[in-house]
Design a protein around this nucleic acid. Structure first.
Lengths: 218, 218
DNA sequence: GTCTATAAACAGATAGAC
DNA sequence: GTCTATCTGTTTATAGAC
C-alpha cells in the first residue's frame, strides 16, 4: 500500500493541517469552510467529500493530534508500566521534561496542537472524549506511575494525580499563554536560548514538586 | 450619583453578564448578538445602543473582568510593595493560595472569568492588551515581589518571573481543564471537599517551588 | 431607552458537470 | 476526485416607530 503524495490523500491531509491551525487560532465555530478550503488549496466541496462535513473534519483533527502527540510522548513514558527504582523514575521524568517540554514550548507543531486541545477541553463534547481516551488519560496514567514511584506514593492516589496535573498544566500554560509570557519576560520570541531556560525551569519545578510530595518528607 | 437597579444600567450589566458567560463558554465569534440579547432579556438593538456593537461589548467584558479580579486578588497582593521578611512573604502567599485559589477552583464567577481570559490570551488583540495592563501585568509583578522575597532572589529576575507563571498557570489549568480533572480524579464535581483538597495541593506545590528556588539551596 | 423590521453579507450543505 | 452554482438559513448592523 503506497501512499501517493498527491491526489486524494494529499487533499485530505492538507485540509486537516489547515483545519488544525485555524481551529486552534480562532476556534471551530469561527472558521468557515470556505476559508478552510482556501487555506488547503482545495475546494469547498472536498470537505463534504472527505469528511462528510465540518464536524467530521473536526474529529479527524482530534485523531491526528492524538496520534502525533502519543508518538511524541511515547519515548518518555513507554517504560512507565514496568517496575523501576525511584531514582530511575526521577531520571525518566527529567529526560521527558527535557525532550517533551522543549517540544511543547518551542515547536510550531505543539503550538497548533495545544491550542486545538485546550479549545476542545474548554468546550466538552465528543471530541474531548476522544482525546481523553486516545491521549490524555493514558499519558496521565503513565506519568502517575512515574511520579508515584519517584515519591514513594501509590501511582493512583489523589495527591499523585493532582501533582501530575500540576506538572502538565504548567507546560500547557507556558505554551498557551506564550504572548503574555514573552511580554513579561521581555523576550522577542521563544528561540533556542529561551527554550533552554524554560526547560531548566520545568526541571527545577519538577524537582521541587517531587521533594514536596516525597512520602518520607510529609 | 445613585445607580438604578433597573433601566439602562441594568440592561447594560445584564448584557455584560450574559456576554461573559457565553463568550467564555463558546468563544466570542461563536456567540450571536441574538443569543446575547435573549440571555440578557434585552433586545438586539440594545447592544448597538449601549456598546456600539459586538466588539464594544467584548471590551466592556474585559473591563469588568479586570475590575472584579483585581478586587479579588487585592487582599493577597496589596502588601506586596512594602518591604517584608521572607517568612512574611511565604505566609502572605499561602494565605493568598487559600483565599484566591479556592475562589478560582470553586466559584462559578471565576469559572466564567477564566474561560473568557484564556480565550482572549489565545487570540492576542486589543482585548488582551487591556487585560495585561489592567490586571495580569500588575498582579504578576506583585507576586514576583512576594516570591522573590520568599526565596531570597531579586523580584525581577527571569527565574522568579517564570516560577510565578508556573504558580498562576497551574491554578488556571485546574480551572480550565476541570472536566478532565473531574474525570481523572473520579469526582462528580468540585464541591467544598474537593476545593479543600485542591487548595492543599496548591499549598504543597507552593512550598515545593519556594524550596526549589530558595537562593541558598541552588 | 426600548423594540422591530429589514438589509446586505455570510454560513454549511449539496446537486451535478467534468 | 475535483470544482462550481445554488439553496436555505443565519449573521451583524441599522433605520425608524414608539
Amino acid at each position: 500500500m503506497i501512499k501517493p503524495v498527491t491526489g486524494a490523500d494529499a487533499t485530505r491531509q492538507a485540509l486537516i493541517d489547515a483545519a488544525l491551525q485555524l481551529f486552534g487560532e480562532r476556534g471551530y465555530d469561527a472558521v468557515s469552510t470556505r476559508e478552510l478550503a482556501e487555506r488547503a488549496s482545495a475546494n469547498i466541496g472536498s470537505i463534504a467529500y472527505h469528511f462528510g462535513g465540518k464536524p467530521g473534519l473536526r474529529l479527524a483533527c482530534a485523531e491526528h493530534v492524538a496520534t502525533r502527540l502519543q508518538a511524541q510522548a511515547a519515548p518518555a513514558i513507554d517504560f512507565a508500566s514496568v517496575p523501576i527504582s525511584p531514582a530511575a523514575a526521577v531520571a525518566l521524568m527529567e529526560a521527558g521534561m527535557e525532550r517533551f517540554g522543549r517540544f511543547v514550548v518551542s515547536s510550531r507543531e505543539a503550538s497548533i496542537y495545544a491550542a486545538f486541545i485546550i479549545r476542545e477541553v474548554m468546550q466538552p463534547g465528543e471530541i474531548v472524549d476522544h482525546l481523553y481516551e486516545r491521549l490524555i488519560g493514558t499519558v496521565h496514567q503513565r506519568l502517575c506511575h512515574l511520579f508515584g514511584t519517584a515519591t514513594g506514593r501509590g501511582a493512583e492516589t489523589q495527591e499523585v494525580r493532582a501533582a501530575v496535573f500540576s506538572l502538565l498544566g504548567q507546560m500547557l500554560y507556558f505554551r498557551i499563554a506564550q504572548p503574555i509570557v514573552l511580554r513579561r519576560m521581555d523576550w522577542p520570541e521563544v528561540g533556542p536560548a529561551q527554550a533552554d531556560f524554560l526547560v531548566s525551569i520545568f526541571k527545577t519545578n519538577l524537582k521541587g514538586l517531587i521533594a514536596a510530595y516525597r512520602k518520607d518528607d510529609v
